[in-house]
Amino acid sequence: MRILLWHVHGSWTHSFVQGGHDYLIPGPPHGTGLAGRPWEATEVDPSEVDADVAVVQRLDELSRVPAGIPQVYLEHNTPSAPAQEHPLAGWDGTIVHVTHFNDLMWDCGTTRTVVIEHGVVDPGPLYTGELPRAAAVINEPVRRGRIVGTDLLPRFDPIDVFGMGTEQIGGMGDHGLDALHRELARRRVYVHTPRWTSLGLSLLEAMHIGMPVVALASTEAIRAVTAEVGAISTNVGELVSATRDLVADPDLAREKGRRAREFALAHYGLDAFLRNWDVTLKEVIG
């Protein structure tokens, strides 16, 4: 298939373009293009492209897809409230949600919806846990504040926070992503503090690395994290206590990290992700 898509979420796109199709990504001034990523994809002018299907991720992209190309809308985000109507409610196309929680909470009306859960390019079992500290990955923690649980981070000190808008590695580009994974792997435990966001790929990547994880039991995290791989609760005190126990016990952290990797490979592996996308896109093309 020849698939037109804009580069919006780098980590998600990194997984999506592993499927062996022809990926057509609008370059400047129509989009960011590959932005230095070594993907097997082609930068194009969307007004001149001939594609079998378009994966649209922002509303303004709907009008930028040439006439006659079938479209599917990929919704990454949670609604602001469970009663919020999706902008494409009543649309005659297909909305793909990245989590079951998002599908549950968005009011999409009569629009067909499909859930295709995340799949992650396996970074490998990198975990060493040599540093008795916690780690978190949050992009723009100051701007996003309580939504991503920035206010909770001091309670988990010592903790190193990575991501765009921090002083640590931001994970931009594949080289940066590799470096980020290596640095995460040196920390004893991964902490996931978002109150109200879609399921973060960084959490799933940490599990693939072999890190034990501690997470707020909110949104889709309850499907991704179990007590066997770390701890999950809405009681922040319980999570702080669990983090300290894991930091203090390297053997316990290593065992839970091993289980986390097994769970992530089984539930958020790349093969199922790509297979489910192939099925959905073929249905949309007809």
Rank of each mutant, 00 (worst) to 15 (best):
A135S: 07
G36Y: 02
I3M: 04
L153C: 05
G286N: 06
R254L: 02
I3N: 02
G36P: 03
D45N: 14
I25P: 03
Y23D: 07
M105I: 08
W39S: 08
A248E: 07
D271K: 14
R144P: 03
L104T: 10
A81T: 12
L239K: 01
P79M: 14
I25V: 10
V214L: 03
V225W: 01
H30I: 11
G163Y: 09
P194W: 03
E262N: 03
R144W: 09
N77R: 08
R259N: 02
T110H: 11
P250G: 03
D278Q: 10
I95N: 02
R2P: 06
A134I: 05
R258W: 00
L126E: 05
P82L: 14
T243V: 13
Y127A: 10
E61C: 11
Y127H: 13
I116A: 06
I116C: 11
S241W: 10
L152C: 03
V229G: 00
H14W: 10
I169C: 14
D151H: 02
A89V: 11
L74Q: 12
A266C: 04
L265W: 00
H76A: 13
E40G: 12
L246T: 01
G129S: 02
H118W: 13
V214P: 01
H21P: 07
R244P: 03
L252E: 04
D251W: 01
F16W: 06
V98L: 14
L153P: 08
E75Q: 14
L180I: 10
E61Q: 15
V44G: 09
W6Q: 07
A136R: 00
V229S: 00
T150D: 08
V96K: 07
M164Y: 14
H192V: 00
P28T: 06
L184G: 03
A242D: 01
P79E: 15
L24D: 04
G31P: 08
G165S: 12
T32K: 07
W277Q: 06
E61D: 15
F263Y: 15
T32D: 09
E130G: 03
I95R: 09
S47E: 11
P82F: 15
R144Q: 06
G176I: 12
V98T: 13
A224C: 01
V72Q: 13
V142N: 06
I138Y: 01
A231N: 04
D22P: 06
H30N: 12
T99R: 01
W277E: 07
Y23F: 09
R188L: 02
V213A: 00
L152K: 01
T113K: 10
E75T: 11
P141W: 04
G210M: 00
D151N: 04
H100I: 05
L5E: 02
T13I: 09
D107Q: 15
W12C: 01
